[in-house]
Write a protein that binds this DNA or RNA. Structure first.
Lengths: 136, 136
DNA sequence: AATGAAATTTGCAATCATTGTTATTTAGTA
DNA sequence: TACTAAATAACAATGATTGCAAATTTCATT
């Protein structure tokens, strides 16, 4: 259940985060291209149309949006940070062959362990690796 | 079920990986201190007793051991790679407050999703964040 | 519309973990 | 002992991310 761009804008307004041109562009990009891009990719693509955009702003914006809970950072292997619109109950699959990242449905809220009885759990993430159908 | 240092040595020998002094030191460190250290931490601690050790060797060794399947790399947020002796069926919990990483039991092999019907799954990892009992 | 304070953006320098490269050392073998 | 390959060391290079200071923009108030 991906939130629409309009819903995200309202969410930002509700949290008193200014809807600047740059922030809306980043948010729009993430809703339009849900391919889990890196900051570099986001910057490179947006820079084509918005030549004044700086990479620092992309990083700042992503951090702001992540702190607001609208964006989630996926830390894959190889220390690459990738970004997506935050949605619940899905995991990520990374193909060892082509590097693509796929979303898949999984009830992450249902994950529990007796060892964590006295822990306060804030977030649960699931990350699989392997080979995708396209590469098989 | 942590493999003993001796079992790990045998495993290396079986795979024709030379049991050099440096490699055994790294392996020994990981079995002795299962705190998911960074490469930097491993280097700093081993360097005290083995002043000729280089950081490059620590990285090379960790990669060799990881490729051999004896060591697993945990990529947490903040782009920090941490290392542990590879064991099955556990997830990782990182405390947002103190930064410590805890192992917890979970049957990762039991995780499935209908969306991945035609995917070849190589590894499954589970990563929780929150606050640990010590910080609560 | 003008003013001024606060937030945002920009550009570039700095950081830091990791990798590349090459020379040196070590180990195993003839 | 000499030879060949593997392993290690030292240091440079990379690349993603952050810090910082200046410039720009926004918004509230007049």
């Amino acid at each position: 259940m991906k939130p629409s761009f309009e819903a995200l804008k309202q969410e930002l307004a509700r949290k008193n985060i200014h809807l600047s041109h740059q922030r809306l562009k980043v948010l729009d990009y993430l809703t339009r291209y849900p391919c889990h891009p890196t900051a570099e990719q986001i910057f490179a693509d947006l820079h084509k149309d918005l030549s004044t955009l700086s990479k620092t702003t992309v990083y700042n914006t992503l951090r702001t949006l992540a702190e607001a809970g609208l964006v989630r950072v996926i830390t894959t292997d190889n220390n690459e940070s990738r970004y997506e619109i935050a949605t619940d109950n899905h995991g990520h699959f990374k193909c060892d062959c082509c590097g693509a990242i796929y979303d898949f449905w999984i009830d992450t809220e249902a994950l529990h362990s007796p060892d964590l009885a006295h822990f306060e759990i804030g977030s649960r993430s699931v990350y699989f690796k392997g080979v995708c159908p396209r590469c098989l």
